[in-house]
């Protein structure tokens, strides 16, 4: 979907991106993370030519991005930023419909798409459609920002710290919605953040950048289990690494099907970290597990968190 080949970017006097090669596959949720000045935002903005790269090639769907007009390229990619940047003089509907309108969609089609997106983001279309951004909370505004980015069914969604300015509860809700939307739509996402917990929660692949180079790239589990160097180990947190590793896995991966236990059940989608928290809080070493519909399907033991159960029976 997106391929960086030996890409470099210099600003007056210093090198922001050194020699970056990276392939983001279709349907991946790729999170770029790193400290300030590591080049993560530059990398993101080079994809839709908000920043032009100086060396190497960047390919989008197999074609060099410079073969597209910048505006055409951007209209094929969704773009959401931390400061949201809704147009204050446009209604929610006009904001979400901005890209479809640029692409010349018929009015009725735009309207239907807006309805669909508002419903997907759990906002009542009839209540929100005609509102202006100043009448929305921060979380609602960022939902509209995400809806605007998704409006024209982009093949790639670029997000620059989209949840960075939100309160923890709203951020948590929006992260969950983002995961659900990405799973449902299969959209390729490239997201920049400096929050390692957000990266572990959202990413199918984390790319850790340091000083304009890739320090390590891999699934959350791979990076947590085997940090490539001291920088990555520090970045993912030495003392919290085990907990973050637990956060990267689901109860469903370690449960024992058919076993029973007493008490309030965990859901199969919960992370192992949540499971650990419950074991400690309830002072038990065994918890029942239910599926999404609430049916009991098995149990998980405290020891399973350390080591997968011996007779792992794949569903």
């Amino acid at each position: 979907m997106i391929r960086f080949e030996h890409v470099g970017k210099d600003y007056a006097g210093w090198t922001a991106i050194e020699d970056l090669s990276l392939t983001v596959e279709k349907g991946e949720f790729c999170v770029l993370i790193g400290p300030s000045g590591s080049g993560k935002t530059t990398t993101l903005k080079m994809i839709n030519r908000l920043i032009e790269h100086d060396r190497g090639r960047i390919l989008f769907e197999g074609a060099e991005i410079r073969s597209f007009a910048p505006e055409e390229l951007r209209r094929r990619m969704g773009y959401a930023i931390q400061s949201i940047g809704l147009f204050p003089h446009w209604t929610v509907e006009e904001n979400i419909g901005a890209v479809p309108k640029l692409l010349g969609w018929p009015r009725a089609k735009i309207r239907d798409r807006v309805t669909e997106l508002l419903e997907m983001l759990t906002l009542d279309p009839e209540r929100y459609r005609a509102r202006y951004p100043r009448h929305l909370s921060g979380g609602e505004q960022q939902r509209i920002g995400v809806a605007r980015a998704l409006a024209a069914n982009p093949s790639v969604l670029l997000m620059d710290e989209p949840f960075g300015a939100l309160d923890p509860v709203t951020r948590d809700t929006l992260q969950a919605e983002m995961l659900r939307i990405q799973a449902a739509s299969g959209t390729t996402v490239v997201l920049v953040t400096h929050d390692i917990d957000e990266a572990i929660r959202l990413a199918s692949r984390i790319v850790i950048l340091e000083g304009g180079r890739i320090a390590q790239s891999g699934s959350p589990r791979e990076i947590l289990a085997a940090p490539a160097n001291d920088f990555v180990a520090d970045f993912v947190g030495r003392s919290d690494r085990g907990l973050r590793l637990l956060a990267a896995e689901r109860v469903g991966d370690r449960m024992r099907r058919g076993e029973t236990a007493v008490g309030e059940p965990l859901t199969v989608d919960a992370s192992l970290r949540e499971a650990l928290s419950l074991f400690v809080a309830r002072n038990v070493d065994r918890l029942p597990v239910q599926d999404g519909s609430g049916a009991l399907i098995g149990a998980i033991r405290l020891a399973d968190l350390v080591r997968p159960p011996p007779s792992e029976a794949a569903p």
């Binding site: 505006e71 951007r74 773009y79 400061s83 940047g85 809704l86 147009f87 003089h89």
Partner: peptide, 25 residues
């Protein structure tokens, strides 16, 4: 707001469109 202009650029508005649809109003 600079955020509105950045977003307008990011979603693929041309300079003229940004001027007419965002900056002027």
């Amino acid at each position: 707001p600079t955020a509105a202009i950045e977003a307008a650029r990011g979603i693929g508005m041309t300079r003229g469109q940004i001027f007419r649809a965002v900056e002027v109003p």
